[in-house]
Simulated scan of single mutants.
Amino acid sequence: MMNSTFSIFDPMSSLMNWNLNWVSTMLGLLFIPQTFWFSPSRLSIFWMKILNILNYELNLLLENKKSKGMTLLFVTFFTYIFFNNFLGLYPFIFTSTSHLSLSLTLALPLWLGLMLYGWIKNTNHMFSHLIPQNTPFMLMPFMVLIETTSNIIRSITLSVRLTANMIAGHLLMALLSSNGSLLSLPGILFLTFVQFFLLILESAVAIIQAYVFTVLSTLYSSEVN
């Protein structure tokens, strides 16, 4: 029972010690038709409109003309997480974003790079963020401690938020579907309706979590400039 329920999160399907499930992180490229790359199509035009809207919003968040080129990095993050989240909704496809090993790989280098850049290039600006304006003198040491802790755990919160949201919905669907063989026909019909509703909800979560990860990363980068 436990093995079948959690098998969707198991990365250990292997061949000659190669973890084949992680191949799904690049599987999204196979779902894109060749016309997307070689000629303008409705799919490519629609996707470019989405990316242009996202790029415009990220530029507004940065509020710094010198940092506008960074939006390419965050749009790439959005695209990569978006495809991997959606691929996890297909049957028998490994959900790579439900593992901290992937989400931390995205969040930790980004956070570390921003912190190094901020403290080396804009040291005074980074120190000013540790104490908000109009903070009483007696509370300044506590605010420094709180802000420092908040900065340190940002990479963890980014990765855990993405991982937890992807695990929760998939696990709920797996737990409900495992009881299908014990139900009568009306129960199976009701379970099918619930699963369909959860699938729509998970599709929305896949988009929202990619967007949240991208926007929060952009906000963190705007604080170091």
Rank of each mutant, 00 (worst) to 15 (best):
T163E: 14
L198S: 08
L158Y: 09
F83Y: 06
N179K: 08
R42Y: 10
T71C: 13
L130N: 00
L60H: 07
S44I: 09
S103G: 01
L199H: 09
I207Q: 00
V212S: 07
T218G: 11
R161F: 12
S159N: 12
K49I: 03
I200A: 15
V160K: 04
S181E: 11
N19W: 04
T79I: 08
S155F: 13
R154H: 07
I93G: 03
L72M: 09
M143N: 14
L183Y: 06
I32G: 01
E63D: 15
P33Q: 08
S98F: 01
T123W: 10
I156G: 03
L145M: 15
W47I: 06
E57V: 04
I152G: 00
P141K: 00
N19L: 04
L139I: 14
L89Y: 06
T95Q: 07
T157D: 07
F6V: 15
I156D: 06
I53Y: 01
L15I: 02
G69E: 13
S44C: 14
S155K: 11
H129K: 12
F6G: 08
F74G: 00
V205W: 04
L104A: 13
T214V: 06
F213L: 13
T218Y: 09
T71K: 05
V212D: 08
T148V: 03
G113D: 01
Q195G: 06
V194A: 12
H129T: 12
Y220D: 14
L201V: 04
M166N: 10
Q133N: 14
F31S: 06
Q209I: 00
V75R: 03
S203Y: 01
P91K: 07
M12I: 05
T192Q: 01
Q34D: 14
P91R: 12
G113Q: 09
N59T: 03
G118C: 02
K65G: 11
F193V: 03
E147R: 11
S159D: 08
Q34L: 15
V205M: 08
N165Y: 03
R161T: 10
P141D: 01
L189V: 07
W22S: 02
G169M: 04
T95N: 11
S159A: 15
W22I: 09
F196L: 15
V215K: 11
S14L: 07
S203P: 02
F193A: 13
L191H: 12
K68Q: 15
S178M: 01
Q195E: 12
N3I: 10
A164R: 14
L116E: 00
M143S: 10
M138T: 05
V144K: 13
L182K: 11
I188L: 02
M48V: 10
L73W: 08
L43G: 02
M166T: 00
K49W: 03
N3R: 04
A107E: 05
V23R: 09
K68S: 09
L139M: 15
M2I: 04
F86I: 11
R161K: 08
I81G: 04
L100G: 15
V224C: 02
E223S: 09
S203D: 04
Y220R: 07
L102Y: 13
N55I: 12
V160L: 03
S177I: 02
L139D: 15
A204L: 14
K49E: 15
H99C: 06
F74C: 11
H170K: 08
N59K: 15
